[in-house]
Amino acid sequence: MSREHSPKRQRLVAVSWPSFLVSGVATVLVFVVFDPLPLLAKTDLAKPSRIGAYSIGFFWFWLITAASSWLTCYFQSPPSDLNRPRATRE
């Protein structure tokens, strides 16, 4: 097993780890204020147990925060990386 830290792998960690931390905090803050059961009762969504709702909430937050982290990474790379000048026709 290689222990090499490739840039790709570093980027993966840089996206997933901060979003994991933040979604953990967000889950606590949100579910202290809102009880998921009465909220879900008014929707057509599935009605899991509270633990299920908390867990889904956590992964949902993780998805959103990871998307944000990924966008940050994406915008960090200079535009010229993706917009290479087109080769002139021969």
Partner: peptide, 8 residues
């Protein structure tokens, strides 16, 4: 330095 291989 950033991408150096980690020595156990």
């Amino acid at each position: 330095a950033l991408y150096a291989k980690r020595e156990k």
